[in-house]
Simulated scan of single mutants.
Amino acid sequence: MRILIWLLRALVFFVLLGFALKNDALVSLRFFFETEWRVPLIVVVLAAFAAGVLLGVTAAVMTLLTQRREIARLRESVRVSSLPHEAPRPVDYPRTL
């Protein structure tokens, strides 16, 4: 099974390497104030991919942190509810001594 996974990884690597080698043409990225960068197309594609991965990981981490806080809150409420409580006081029990 490990050999199959490594073969699949090698295949993906070589496909992406071929894609990068075939898309080495320069593209112009135009920004504000007549600023222009000329970079290879693969740099633009990889930057967009990296930005997407970063955005996805950030969203996943935020969801994970929210779930951990909720789990901690629920565990605390279960712990507090399982503690032995005082016996209920009668209605006419004096509040002050």
Rank of each mutant, 00 (worst) to 15 (best):
I3K: 13
I3R: 12
L4T: 05
L4I: 11
L4F: 04
W6Q: 13
W6T: 12
L8H: 09
R9S: 10
A10G: 02
L11K: 04
V12W: 02
F13A: 09
V15R: 05
G18K: 01
G18P: 00
F19Y: 09
F19I: 06
L21T: 01
L21G: 00
K22M: 09
N23W: 01
L26D: 04
V27K: 00
L29R: 01
L29Q: 05
L29K: 03
L29H: 03
R30M: 06
F31L: 14
F32W: 14
F33R: 11
W37N: 04
W37C: 05
R38N: 07
R38I: 00
V39H: 01
V43F: 14
V43T: 05
V44Q: 01
V44S: 02
A47C: 09
A47Y: 03
A48H: 08
A48W: 14
F49I: 06
A50Y: 14
V53K: 13
L54T: 13
L54H: 05
L55I: 05
G56L: 14
G56I: 06
G56H: 10
V57A: 13
V57K: 08
V57S: 09
T58I: 00
T58R: 15
A59W: 08
A60Q: 12
A60T: 03
A60K: 13
A60Y: 09
A60G: 02
V61N: 04
M62L: 15
L64K: 08
L64M: 13
L65N: 11
L65G: 02
T66G: 11
Q67F: 08
Q67I: 08
R68C: 14
R68F: 05
R69Y: 03
E70Y: 04
E70A: 14
I71A: 12
I71W: 04
A72T: 06
R73Q: 13
L74S: 12
L74P: 02
L74W: 07
E76C: 10
E76R: 15
V78D: 07
R79N: 03
R79H: 11
